[in-house]
Amino acid sequence: MVQERTGVATFKGNPITLIGPELKVGDQAPAFNLSKNLLEQATLSDYAGKVKLISVVPSLDTGVCDAQTRRFNEAASELGDDVIVLTISADLPFAQARWCGAAGVDRVVTLSDYRDNSFGKAYGVLIKEFVIDMRSIFVIDQNDVIQYVEYLPEMAEHPDYDKAVAAVKQLL
């Protein structure tokens, strides 16, 4: 049975329902299968041996998501080759590519959860009412263990960028 979590998040003050478990530090990161483009898939194992900063956004075409992705793109340049920064949204892959090109974002890998929302369900961030993923941050170590989690209580708020980047740096 699919787990539904209520009372943990809002969108502009209105309650929303998150589908999936609440992951915690120390949990094994769930596997995922996301779209790089319409033909190519990406999995957690594709990034084996790297520290993974996963930035989840509802849609790149909104102000906070735009700022969040740009901020982590800047951070990616100073984190080095042992770190991969992934931005995950339910935007279609060609919309992600268009946005990255227009924004000059070239260090973050964008992946789409549009096919079956499997990432959202596995990581507990799928918003039942909108069928998009809730803003959240996950830092996963080289052994695929979650070392940092931030589930935003309000979708329109920014994550704690500095804490997320500090969590990555502690693993290097």
Rank of each mutant, 00 (worst) to 15 (best):
N73P: 04
G104Q: 05
D61E: 15
R71V: 01
T62H: 09
G49Q: 02
F11D: 11
A156W: 04
A156F: 01
C65S: 15
R115I: 07
Q170C: 06
P93Y: 10
A90P: 00
E74L: 07
N117M: 09
V25P: 03
A156Q: 13
N143T: 09
K50N: 11
M134Y: 15
V85G: 01
V168D: 12
N73V: 00
M1D: 01
Q3D: 11
L171G: 08
L79C: 00
K128C: 06
Y123K: 08
V108I: 06
L34T: 03
E157Q: 15
S45E: 13
I54M: 15
K12F: 13
M155K: 04
W99H: 09
Y114H: 11
F138K: 00
A9C: 02
D106E: 13
I16W: 00
K52E: 09
V149N: 03
M155H: 06
V85S: 04
L18P: 02
D162M: 12
A42Q: 01
I84Q: 10
L23K: 09
G49R: 03
A95P: 09
G63W: 07
E154P: 03
L53C: 12
I137T: 14
Q96D: 10
G124R: 03
K169D: 11
R107H: 13
D113G: 01
I137R: 04
I19H: 02
T43R: 12
L53D: 10
I88S: 06
E40A: 02
D160L: 13
P159F: 14
K128W: 04
D61H: 13
S45T: 07
G20M: 07
F94H: 14
C100Q: 14
Q170G: 02
N143S: 09
G124M: 04
D82W: 01
A95Q: 12
M155N: 10
D160H: 13
I54F: 10
V56C: 12
F72W: 04
N33H: 11
D27S: 08
T62F: 09
V125P: 05
S118T: 14
L34D: 03
E78H: 09
V8P: 07
Y123F: 14
E4T: 07
A102T: 12
I132A: 08
E78M: 08
G20W: 10
F32A: 05
E157M: 15
R98E: 08
